[in-house]
Nucleic acid binder design. Structure first.
Length: 946
RNA sequence: GCGGGUGUGGUGAAAUUGGUAGACACGCCAGACUUAGGAUCUGGUGCUGCGAGGCUUGGGGGUUCGAGUCCCUCCACCCGCACCA
């Protein structure tokens, strides 16, 4: 039997397979994919005595562009891990789904005039096809789509749980709001400071005297999902609200229209109540330091004090609070600075300063946030004319406003200590404000001393103390006179939860007389889900409202008007890992038996781009559901693995300016040229297929080329893989050409999973050759199946067991590239030994099965098995086959390796020492000098010191 | 500026606890089989030197019998945060 190699290389079918004597990946993969599909091999049961393992991928947003070779990197890694754990006897949950709601789909729909439901459906079908092509072991019967009403019913339900809950700071957990009303009726809010308004105090009698509406308004300040007001970017020309990243340089990204800040009523999640728990429970997670650090930065905990200063402005009196992380520097305060937007500015500005202040505030308004953030060097500010009274020294200190103080952080006001803070120092120098030195010789007068070591000087009762002691002493002193209090501040803000969009989850909320009611409480008492109405037009509603505001028959119910905002993209993704556990449950978001069994995600694989968004929100939702008793764990993802990006490798040609002639890379310097990107599919390595280039576009049809060595060589550059850079490689093409098994292994072979690296299609040949060589251990191209029952040699057993050991250890530590190397070493050794023995090849096939599932399933059946290799057991390695009884020692003289000598492993050190010293090479390098020391590390090396 | 990470041949990389640096591949060179080779196989390939040898893990310094690995310092690049009080 002779096959045409050429067609084989292209992966074409041979018609009737007479059984694959040579590796015909196309037929093999087609056959087993169909078989696995028919026999439901990937279906996972919740009902088993096996130990569980939950392996999760970050589910994709199905964009119109489809997958490129970079996307599946993490999916392949998790698939290998999931298959490996199954072979190791675990019940493995490895699901996949789609994050199908979102802004891009709505945008794409608006642009193309298709309904987002239709485009999303199409995109998912395409993603599914591409994923299936790679041979993943997902249990598709558990698929979730966030845009499916059966799914978002429970997203809405969880929102209602948050709406009906408050955070008890004493017990540090969420509790039902009904318990809070009981507390208020009994003792007012004295024991539970209001998180939405810390000035709100009432006793039981006052609470009872409130009207039902007033009580609801108070409760809104406590709810975990609550309504408040926030600034959004409003674009009059587009008639819509824009996301932060849709606003570039103060105008809309689309169209460049002017935008303005607009205050709108919005839903929020009170994630700030969870700040401390989100921070402290990071310590127990098996996440990378970088990832934990990003979350810590985002939460931004800083401890210090609130200090209150009395104010005097002309005849007026008042007070202002500042937040400081350095209460120990209180005696160094030379002035206060308020944010220009601070509410007090108008009131305290004196008549003499009013014009200057108004002008300065006008100037600040004209500055975009981007400008305010990027210009760090320039010092600006304006004196208000008001003075503050220092609470300890009773000195008068001037009150300024400056753009470097932000309204939204702390209290929007600071106490400036120029001798201890760089920005305050620069400000004082610029405006000639006298500087009080509280650091003695440590402060030079040239730059602020912001170091926290050393001691405090010139500071009354704090003088001589360390920073730490002075901080404590200052806070107690301020507390005693009622001018300050200890305070922990967080950078973290409550999460905005409203979007003025169509393609998202509707809120289960109805307004009666403008007061929001949950649909599951009286007087609404409706049921979930609140379905998103299918509409033809989803243009923005009036006055910045979402498109749903136009659907009056949906908005107006007998009880009242529906909320017309929708939930943001992260709503559905904050809990999807729970739904996979029990995806068809109609009565609960997931049954408790299921969530108790599957518990936390053991390994979560995804990119770093979700470091703070998705990963923080899902942690908060998990904690809230845990507090309310719905699940039994309060962290969702035990271990996190961040895959690196696969970058594109772009190719360039060089057009001689003003001509249609292109010059090869090496000769381009001899001409004035313009760099032009070309599609990587037309380039083999760096050699351009000039005919393909001519056919690419009409304007290149008559292109001419200046070649070097008869070839046109392209320039190359590594950059992000994207359509616009013409460097996208589609996994479908690679699978067609080399097969899914080769593709999977090559992605893993590229390097460590966490590291970003460029895609290079050329390198795939090595992995493909490996699989062909592996195949030939089992099959001869002329005679077919050649596996024998001969007894294996010691060397063959050593090769096998070394491989089993390394591969099982490396998979556990997610080092997949080294596994592939080890398989190559193993197959190279077995091929050289001419090994075709079942005792070696059967376990080897199982060990490779998680990397190359198709070829190993085929060989498994050739070996006579009738059940799937997925249900085989991963062969245990036996150390006794691995240990060698002699070692080739590296022998060094003074730490430099000079020779190698072989000794038995158990040889006594004295014998070895004698033999080494007698060795001719050793004697030559010792140059007759006496030996000082003999270092012998058993099994490793020998060093002679002279 | 702060925090985190990375730096090893022409290329992707390996070296898990300090113990033979460059495994395994790509590419390249030479050869075998062949009508042919994008099939398969064999040998070579860090740099330098005719050679013995010398040099080599971003640069410099240190600890050690021994450092890619530990410590100090400097440099470059990537990621996150940032007039954050």
């Amino acid at each position: 039997m002779y096959f045409c190699h050429f067609s084989d290389f292209l992966g074409r079918s041979h018609g009737t397979p007479t059984y694959y004597m040579e590796y015909n990946f196309g037929e093999i993969e087609r056959k087993w994919k169909a078989h696995w599909n028919q026999t439901n091999v990937y279906k996972v049961s919740n009902d088993t005595s096996k130990p569980k393992c939950y392996v999760l991928d970050m589910f994709p947003y199905p964009s119109g562009a489809g997958l490129h070779v970079g996307h599946p990197l993490g999916y392949i890694a998790s698939d290998i891990y999931a298959r490996f754990k199954r072979l190791k006897g675990f019940n493995v949950l490895h699901p996949m789904g789609f994050d199908a709601f979102g802004l891009p789909a709505e945008q794409y729909a608006l642009e193309t005039g298709q309904h987002p439901a239709d485009t999303t459906e199409k995109n998912i079908a395409r993603y599914r096809e591409q994923l299936d092509n790679i041979g993943f072991c997902y249990d598709w019967s558990r698929e979730v789509r966030t845009s499916d009403p059966k799914y978002y019913k429970w997203t809405q339900w969880i929102f209602l749980q948050l709406f009906h809950s408050w955070y008890d700071r004493t017990s540090q957990k969420a509790r039902p709001i009904s318990e809070l009303t009981d507390i208020f009726a009994a003792s007012g809010n004295a024991g539970h400071q209001c998180p939405g308004d810390d000035k709100l105090h009432f006793d039981a009698a006052t609470w009872s005297s409130y009207s039902a509406e007033q009580q609801r308004a108070v409760l809104m300040h406590y709810r975990l999902a609550y309504q408040g007001h926030a600034q959004v970017w409003w674009c009059e020309a587009l008639g819509t609200v824009l996301a932060n990243d849709e606003v570039v340089n103060g105008v809309s990204e689309r169209g460049g229209h002017p935008v303005e800040r607009k205050l709108m009523r919005q839903w929020f999640l009170r994630i700030t109540e969870y700040a401390d728990r989100l921070l402290s429970s990071l310590d127990n997670l098996d996440w990378s330091d970088a990832m934990k650090e990003m979350q810590r930065n985002w939460i931004g905990k800083s401890s210090g004090a609130i200090v209150t200063f009395n104010l005097s402005f002309g005849e007026g009196r008042g007070e202002v609070s500042v937040f400081t992380t350095r209460p120990d520097t209180i005696f160094g305060v030379d002035f206060l600075v308020l944010a220009p937007e601070h509410a007090l500015v108008d009131a305290i500005t004196t008549n003499e300063q009013r014009q200057a202040i108004d002008e300065y505030r006008q100037y600040v308004k004209s500055r975009s946030e981007r400008e305010r953030m990027s210009e760090v060097k320039q010092v600006t500010g304006c004196f208000t004319g008001a003075y503050a009274i220092h609470p300890l020294t009773h000195n008068r200190v001037p009150v300024w406003i400056a753009e470097y103080v932000l309204a939204g952080y702390g209290t929007g006001a600071i106490m400036a200590v120029p001798s201890g803070d760089d920005r305050d120092h620069a400000f004082a120098k610029h405006f000639n404000i006298p500087i009080t030195n509280i650091f003695g010789d440590q402060y030079t007068g040239e730059a602020a001393y912001s170091d926290k070591s050393g001691s405090i000087h010139n500071s009354g009762f704090l003088t001589g103390m360390t920073v730490k002691d002075a901080t404590e002493a200052a806070i107690s002193a301020l507390e005693k006179i009622g001018s300050g209090t200890r305070r922990t501040n967080y950078r973290l803000r409550d999460a905005g939860f409203s979007r003025q969009r169509y393609w998202g989850e509707p809120f289960p909320v109805v307004y009666i007389n403008d007061i929001p009611y949950a649909t599951d409480e009286a007087p609404i008492s409706g049921s979930l889900p609140v379905e998103l109405p299918h509409v033809q037009s989803y243009k923005p509603g009036p006055e910045g409202q979402g498109p749903l505001a136009n659907v009056t028959e949906w908005v107006n119910t007998t009880a009242g008007q529906r909320e017309t905002n929708t939930m943001p993209g992260y709503a559905g993704s904050s809990w999807y890992f729970l739904r996979y556990m029990d995806p068809h449950n109609d009565t609960e978001f997931a049954g408790r038996t299921a969530t108790d069994y599957w518990n936390q995600v053991d390994i979560y694989v995804g990119g770093t781009e979700h470091a703070v968004g998705h990963l923080l929100y899902s942690r908060m939702w998990t904690k809230a559901l845990y507090d309310l008793g719905h699940i039994g764990f309060d962290e969702p993802f035990k271990k996190l693995l961040n895959q690196g990006m696969i970058q594109g490798s772009s190719r360039f040609v060089y057009r001689i300016n003003g001509t249609n002639t292109f010059v090869s890379y090496g000769l381009r310097k001899q001409h004035q040229t313009t760099e032009v990107r070309v599609d990587v599919s037309m380039v083999n390595g760096t050699e351009l297929d000039t005919d393909a280039f001519k056919n690419w576009r009409p304007e290149y049809a008559a292109a001419e080329f200046i070649l070097e060595d008869g070839k046109y060589i392209c320039g190359a550059e590594v950059e992000k893989m994207s359509k616009s850079k013409y460097n996208v490689v589609n996994p479908d093409d690679i699978v067609k050409q080399y097969g899914a098994d080769t593709f999977r292994m090559y992605e893993m072979f590229l390097g460590p999973i966490e590291v970003s690296k460029p895609w290079d299609t050329k390198g795939i040949e090595g992995v493909h050759r490996f699989l062909k060589k592996f195949w030939r251990l089992y099959n001869d191209e002329q005679t077919g199946f050649i596996v024998t029952d001969e007894a294996p040699t010691e060397a063959e057993l050593r090769t096998l067991h070394k491989t089993l050991k390394k591969v099982s250890e490396d998979i556990e530590r997610f080092s997949f590239n080294t596994c592939v190397s080890q398989f190559m070493i193993c197959v190279n050794e077995l091929a050289s030994a001419g090994c075709h023995k079942r005792a070696i090849l059967e376990p080897l096939a199982v060990s490779l099965a998680s990397f190359a599932p198709h070829i190993t399933e085929e060989l498994w059946h050739q070996l006579g098995h009738t059940t799937t290799i997925l249900d085989a057991a991963f062969p245990a390695h036996n150390d006794s086959f691995i240990t060698e009884n002699s070692v080739n020692y590296a022998v060094s003289i003074n730490g430099k390796k000079r020779t190698e000598i072989e000794f038995a492993l158990e040889a006594p050190q004295a014998d070895i020492e004698a033999a080494v010293l007698a060795d001719a090479t050793v004697q030559k390098w010792m140059e007759g000098k006496p030996m000082k020391k003999f270092i012998f590390v058993k099994g490793k090396m020998i060093n002679v010191v002279v």
